[in-house]
Design a protein around this nucleic acid. Structure first.
Lengths: 148, 148
DNA sequence: CTAACTGCAAAAATTTTGCATGCAC
DNA sequence: GTGCATGCAAAATTTTTGCAGTTAG
């Protein structure tokens, strides 16, 4: 069957070849895992792939980011979250329940415009994360408060 | 002289006493360091204080945050940046030069309003950081590009 | 006095580095 | 065959945990 070929890694092979680098099963697996998980820490990605050393996961995440195929954000704590580069949205992280909510990228357009106009600062959407409390957790807190 | 008393730690003593905790020189030093540095990682704070063990720095940063005297943000990488709770502004981090620019908190008001209206999500300003490129670095990049 | 706090040592967790073998091209 | 990549071991970080001595209240 030749039909099942490169379905999950469209331009990986090309990107690698352009730089004289090699296509390996590990690289394909890491990229697949990032795409499948949406956003994940190196450790989570390492758990999601089989037979790939953690070291290789780190090295390939770095490489894939250089190739422009994945991006990373900080969703809290220490571990960076890697995500597919073409997955264009921003993140809302709830401090209370820990949930990560995806939001449309145009949410930051106004802010980006203001920063650009006022300060010449070019906002990086792909790295954009907002912390706060989600509706459910706010509601839960208010219920608790009123009970005091 | 009694006039030089608690000039740098206004409500630390009170906050501690309320909880039955103790005022120590180390706690005062850690809080002072956070206020003096503006925003700093545990390691930087540890370097800034004298005769305080790193372990104690970590423990006290956690405590001071519980007491509401300091806050932390993520300015990139892994290490959290601790800052005075009353120092109310948001951060712009340049990926190119690494500079951290302080910006007025009202910068996020529009975004906060929209998130609240649309999703009931309450944004935490004190934890707010924007990544991108500062004016100087954008200019430098464009000069480089045009030279190609 | 009493128990909270600290410092030191050690453990845990996370990321990086070196090097010999393996494999893509 | 050539040299880029991987895996494994070891080192370097960064943060946490345990415990006995110290000290604020």
């Amino acid at each position: 069957m030749s039909g099942m070929a490169d379905h999950s890694a469209p331009d990986l092979a090309t990107a690698l070849r352009t730089r004289g680098l090699r296509m390996t099963a590990q690289r394909e697996q890491v990229l697949d895992a990032v795409r499948r998980l949406g956003h994940a820490t190196p450790e989570q990605i390492s758990d999601a792939v089989t037979g790939v050393d953690v070291t290789t996961v780190y090295r390939n995440l770095e490489l894939l980011e250089e190739l422009g195929l994945v991006r990373h954000t900080h969703l809290g704590h220490g571990a960076p979250a890697y995500r597919p580069a073409d997955d264009d949205h921003v993140h809302l992280v709830c401090h209370a329940c820990g949930n990560v909510i995806d939001a449309p990228p145009d949410l930051v357009d106004a802010l980006a415009g203001r920063l650009a106009d006022d300060r010449g600062f070019v906002l990086d959407r792909s790295h954009f994360t907002v912390f706060g409390r989600c509706r459910d957790c706010v509601a839960a807190e208010q219920t608790a408060d009123s009970g005091r």
